[in-house]
Amino acid sequence: MRKILVLLTGILLVSCGGTNTTIVSSWKDPNTNAEKEQFKKIMVVALLKNETTRRTVEDQIASKNPLFHPSYSLFTKTNLDYTTTQKLSILNSEGYDGIITMRLVDTQKETNYVPGTNTSMYYGGMYGGMYGGYYGGWYDMYSPSYYDAGYYQESTYYIVETNVFSLKNNKLIWTGTTSSSNVIDVSQTVDNIIIEVAKEMRKDGFVAPEPKK
């Protein structure tokens, strides 16, 4: 139990603050969970076209735990086109029993209207009554009003799918889809996805709750 928690929850730090990423949907194989699988060696696969970004993302995820290994260290341009059977043979020979994949499945743009604001500060009440007569009415009870015009704001949402496969049982055992808005820092967004995925795994019962201190 403790080993699995360290593997799939302890390493996925849950932030107290909010992120720009939310869970859209998730699914868990009803007959399994992380504790039953007892993973010993997991390959991390970032299904991205850009090789540099692929390596960066895989390294970032793999750095969370020594049981995680980036796929580019095993699958290069020379064997990426191998058949599924050939790839599975390589994975089995290297002692892998699990795979985590992350892939961008869609981008969506959304335009929202941000209404303007109308603010003014009120100087009435006690001070207005005390000083209004003394200053002969030159001091107005209301400060100038300020208006910020509304505007349209376009947001881009990146839909990412994270999957966990069991090589021992040769099947998908957990999948989750996240939506991340206005991505500026890819590294931070990957961390946010990991945070939200970890929360959802606990919610789904795929990973046991953190032990009480």
Results as ranks from 00 to 15, higher is better:
180 S>R: 00
149 A>L: 08
29 D>V: 04
93 S>F: 06
135 Y>M: 05
45 V>L: 08
44 V>N: 00
71 S>W: 03
113 Y>K: 05
48 L>Q: 06
68 F>D: 05
56 T>W: 05
11 I>C: 14
107 T>H: 06
3 K>T: 13
34 A>P: 04
66 P>R: 08
193 I>Y: 01
147 Y>E: 05
102 M>A: 15
37 E>Y: 04
66 P>I: 06
144 P>C: 03
78 T>S: 15
60 Q>K: 10
63 S>H: 07
9 T>G: 15
66 P>K: 11
180 S>C: 00
34 A>M: 06
186 V>N: 07
131 Y>P: 03
59 D>S: 08
167 L>P: 04
82 Y>H: 09
24 V>G: 04
70 P>A: 00
149 A>F: 08
98 G>V: 05
161 E>F: 01
203 K>N: 15
186 V>I: 15
118 N>P: 02
121 M>K: 14
7 L>N: 06
1 M>R: 10
165 F>R: 07
76 T>E: 05
27 W>I: 02
169 N>W: 09
203 K>T: 12
76 T>N: 10
128 G>E: 01
66 P>F: 05
173 I>K: 01
106 D>E: 15
2 R>V: 12
129 G>M: 10
106 D>P: 03
60 Q>A: 06
168 K>R: 09
21 T>F: 04
73 S>D: 14
18 G>F: 13
194 I>Y: 01
151 Y>I: 04
107 T>G: 00
141 M>R: 14
51 E>Q: 15
22 T>W: 12
4 I>T: 12
45 V>G: 01
143 S>F: 01
200 E>R: 15
110 E>I: 07
30 P>L: 06
121 M>S: 15
160 V>P: 00
182 N>M: 00
140 D>E: 10
196 E>L: 03
82 Y>E: 10
132 G>C: 06
68 F>E: 05
103 R>V: 08
46 A>W: 03
96 Y>N: 05
165 F>M: 09
151 Y>S: 08
171 K>Q: 12
124 G>W: 00
153 Q>V: 09
145 S>M: 11
44 V>A: 01
154 E>M: 11
113 Y>G: 04
113 Y>P: 05
153 Q>H: 09
87 K>I: 08
143 S>Q: 14
135 Y>N: 07
58 E>K: 00
156 T>P: 06
199 K>F: 04
69 H>F: 12
69 H>R: 13
162 T>A: 09
192 N>Q: 15
107 T>P: 03
13 L>R: 15
151 Y>F: 11
202 R>P: 01
99 I>D: 04
116 G>F: 06
101 T>I: 02
191 D>Y: 03
2 R>T: 12
